[in-house]
Amino acid sequence: MKQILAQLLSGKPGPGAASVPAARENLALVAVLFGLVVLFSAISDRFLTGATFASIAYQLPELGLLTLAMLIPILSGGLNLAVTFSANISGLVLAWVLMWGGGADAGLTALIPAIILALVSGAVIGWVLGAVVAYTGAHPILASLAMMIFLRGLGEFLTRGGSVSGFPPEVTWLGQGNVMGIPVPLVIFALCVGIWALILTRTRLGFAIYQLGSNLEATRYSGINTRWALTMVYVLSGIMCAVAGIVMASRFNSVRVGHGEAYLLITVLACFLGRVDPFGGFGRVAPVILALVILQVIGSGLNLLGTNQHLATALWGGILISVMVMRFIWGRVAGRMR
């Protein structure tokens, strides 16, 4: 694992790195991050404190997990608009199994099946979505949109718009505890990042995802089972949504359908800020994680400055537009220099 992380951070020349060397690309993001930290600490003396970093450490993972769930579909040339509600449904599955196992008194015998079933529910949702995309040729935007409407309806129908709460302490530990001072959600997130990087750089599936993201038919002609690979893209995305759902449920000690809905935009934003190609085929995990940290620092900074929550929403939209416009201009300039 250490070796892989080192490889990621050292900026192995990956696909699409021809124009910008990967290391420099990461360096630019680190510079932005550093600038932001300096800026916020200059504005507020409460920024450079342990409390800020603790809050970032606990908030980053759920957003990060959803971003990972968004990353793979975008790499495959699609999009998964159902990530947040998929996470909600998996959270609900976890909650129900725990309720059935005794609520706040449920022990490990209920927790382990609850987690497994939550993950399975995510995989099943992803499989259905993936099968629709891969086998019927439906557009991923439409398919995931319909799935999102369905899941939201399903969740609201089953919970009657309310929330499910009251979990055993083990679950609370997952969301709020720490291991040797490191928050448990952060550990889970780091693990998932490692797995994602491994899948994308070192497995046949990951290889296929990049190829089919650029050209599905040419990849199929090369003897890759593109239907299977495309289905797996959404299965993986669904499983990662489930992990996010579990972390979210345990952090808030409750599950409500619609929770985290606003994250959808930020996951897309993190991917594009992390230089993932919106048309698929190019993008790596490391810059996306850096982009996430940047966004989380901005979020915490705004929070600390007492920025209105809605103004922050508007800002996210504005940042997404600026990032895309800057990418466009950068592409023009780089093209002219070549």
């Binding site: 696909p15 021809a18 190829q211 650029s214 050209n215 040419a218």
Partner: peptide, 13 residues
């Protein structure tokens, strides 16, 4: 162009 090679991807891949 559209079936023989995945044009934007690398020579190695």
């Amino acid at each position: 162009l559209s079936l023989g090679l995945v044009q934007p991807q690398s020579i190695a891949d």
